[in-house]
Design a protein around this nucleic acid. Sequence first.
RNA 1: GCGGAGUUAGUCCAGCCCGGCACGACGUCAGCUUCCCAAGCUGAAGGCCGCGGGUUCAAAUCCCGCACUCCGCACCA
Length: 485
Amino acid sequence: MKYEQIMQLALERGFYFPSCEIYSDAPAGFWEYGPSGASLKNKFIELWRRELVRRDRMWEIDGSQVMSQLVFVASGHLSSFADPVITCQKCKSVFRADKLIAEISSIVIPESADLDQFDRTVSEKAIRCPKCRGNFENAKKFNMMFRVGIGPQDEPAYLRPETCQSIFVDFPRLYKTMRGRLPIGVAQIGKSFRNEISPRQSLLRLREFYQAEIEVFCNPNTLDEMERFSDVENTVLYMMIDDVIKPMTCREAYESKVVPNKLVAYYLGLLMEFYQKTGIDTGRSRFRKLGEKEKAFYASVAFDFEVETTTGWLELVACNYRSDYDLTSHGKVSKEKFEVLDDNVKVLPHVFELSMGIDRSLYTILEHSFREDKENDRVVLSLKPYLAPVHVGILSLVKKDGLAEKTEEIFSKMKTRYDAFLDHSGAIGRRYRRLDEVGAPFAVTVDHQTLQDDTVTIRMRDSMSQERIKIPDLDFYLSRSVSYP
RNA sequence: GCGGAGUUAGUCCAGCCCGGCACGACGUCAGCUUCCCAAGCUGAAGGCCGCGGGUUCAAAUCCCGCACUCCGCACCA
């Protein structure tokens, strides 16, 4: 039920809605953030920046979304990000060629094989459509990357399918100029593009989406010498082992070898502490270790950070130990040198990655914050105050007797320091409820007493309780209440 | 991409079988009233009935095609 309720709230209150919706040719898998959604997203990103980038002294970059073809030759996306598919001539069902052949004939053809190899096997083994027994058309490659043509010659380039390629490509310059030492995190927020076959469920499966990625460059020989580990050693992770979710501290996870090394344990701990501050119920989270078949082609060890929602367990972050896969292949294709000096020893860094889906995280925040308060007949988004799209509503109890003017005076003092919403019209209870629905944690109300003693009431979203404070104290009160933890 | 169900105002929806001014609720706006939790009264705005084509004197309604949304399958870094 909740997915539909969140969707309705998103449409009614300006969180998100379909892109290009007034046109009938609007493609699937593209959504816009309205004012409330954009504000929530910006605040979420700021929290991410504080809790990960600044806390761990990472470098944040902002790379371009269109990248050269050779980048994806090196990364492997041009060959491996494409699936070989075969289509039934009769019922038009589409299958993964390698998977169907393996299933029916037990012949294993690597997915990167030449297409005629699939066609030959299909005809030799007389493989037909499992649904309708029809014959197959020739195998085709379906690449999930969006190709773009550059300049008048239409030179091929691609919209990046993951933001991290910018980070790998930029690493030699960053390391030479920014004076860091291993291990060093490089972070980036930005858009990625994947031509999904069937985008679904609004923000959960998009063709254009936001990622917040962190690539930690590290010395593979010193993965257990992570001094900063003590910062998070007692942080509890919910590790999924043999289908059982087991809470354990970062230290326990490391010592029991559930997590392969200290560096990975440290970053999983940081990630956990970040998510605790988003208001997501981390008691319903798990780190799931991926099996050989599930892992991406570049990963040697991988954990998915998943959170339970009404749509099932949702992957919010992929944590991949990519070893030297990326730097080696970019080194080969570009001839750029990626080795760096670490303690006067030349080393090719390995990469551990935290690849976060922002849109999914925002959906999860909304769902976990959504509350139907039946007793008071209202819907409340109990967002963390620092993430709320509107920090404070500034209301006049009634418009007349100079209260409106006084309210506007307070509003104009607040509006550049907070996300404040001015509202005079309608019943006061209705205005409080509207603010509850966008998650505004506070409402300031100007009443007749305000004109006499310069005080206002401040109303709390979650408890609906009120207290009276002096107008000069308002700024201090709010700045303390809506500041990041 | 396959199968199923849908698409009507900001939101939820009736009408569709059986063709003839598009119903209602909530929400929004303005005014009155009340003055601290969705009260009431008066009024208003808001619809190419998803898009395109066909049948018909006449299409939200019947037929065809397409797009999008949701569910299942498949796919999924």
